[in-house]
């Protein structure tokens, strides 16, 4: 099955080399050299993209806005390319809706490993198929939907998988590493911030008061647990 990737990167050399490298892996590549073009291509092209790679430093509309714009209508996996792993860029990017990030200069192998992990995960999703209930929230793993009453809550793929993982182990403390492995399919190169930011985003969507969560609780120094 052919994977459609969209690369948003203003540096032509990097873009071309990424295209060459990723095409070798059997992907179909579309390119955009600005955030505006990327949103245009994503929304209007006749292709359903499986994954988007966005560089943060773009002229005009920056990577964060581009990410947000795409997120408005889609839960496609997004990887952002940041300048430095330590700056707020990572957190801002993840807050903007990205599923993962990679830092320049990156190893092409690492990038393709992350792409594979995200794609694998979003295709072979559902392990449990029965409906899960957390308070007034209903999770339908088969349909990939989350509902409060009759109202559907829109979650990204990552948030959804995170919620499913937590909900299938109610009351049990799950470490960040465990969640990285289960949700992101990462064996090793994970960053606790990935989990933290996504948990925060999940809370803003499912908790009535995200500042004082009722369901997704932090266990200091250990990880997270879900209480019904």
């Amino acid at each position: 099955m052919v994977t459609n990737l969209l690369i948003v990167e203003d540096d032509e050399s990097i873009r071309t080399s990424m295209r060459l490298s990723l095409e070798d892996e059997g992907n179909e590549i579309s390119e955009a050299d600005s955030g505006e073009k990327a949103v245009d291509i994503f929304n209007n092209a006749n292709i359903s993209f499986d994954l988007v790679i966005i560089d943060i430093m773009l002229p005009g509309m920056n990577g964060f806005d581009c990410c947000k714009e795409i997120r408005k209508h889609s839960s496609v996996p997004i990887i952002i390319v940041t300048a430095r792993a330590d700056t707020n860029d990572v957190v801002t990017g993840l807050e903007a809706g990205a599923d993962d990030y990679i830092t320049k200069p990156f190893e092409p192998k690492e990038l393709s490993a992350r792409i594979r992990a995200l794609l694998r995960r979003s295709r072979t999703s559902e392990g449990t198929s029965s409906t899960l209930l957390i308070g007034d929230i209903e999770i339908l793993p088969d349909a990939g939907e989350v509902k409060r009453g009759n109202e559907e809550i829109h979650l990204t793929r990552t948030e959804f998988l995170l919620l499913c993982e937590l909900a299938s182990n109610p009351g049990k403390v799950l470490s960040r590493e465990h969640l990285l492995e289960k949700v992101w399919s990462y064996d090793y190169f994970g960053d606790g911030r990935l989990v933290d930011v996504h948990v925060r985003r999940l809370r803003t969507k499912i908790e009535r008061d995200p500042a004082n969560p009722d369901h997704v609780l932090t266990v200091r120094g250990l990880g997270y647990k879900l209480v019904v």
């Binding site: 990097i14 080399s17 990424m18 060459l20 200069p105 990156f106 190893e107 192998k109």
Partner: peptide, 10 residues
């Protein structure tokens, strides 16, 4: 460097 590394992988 990113270009170099990526091109090398090709």
């Amino acid at each position: 460097l990113t270009t170099l590394a990526t091109s090398l992988s090709v």
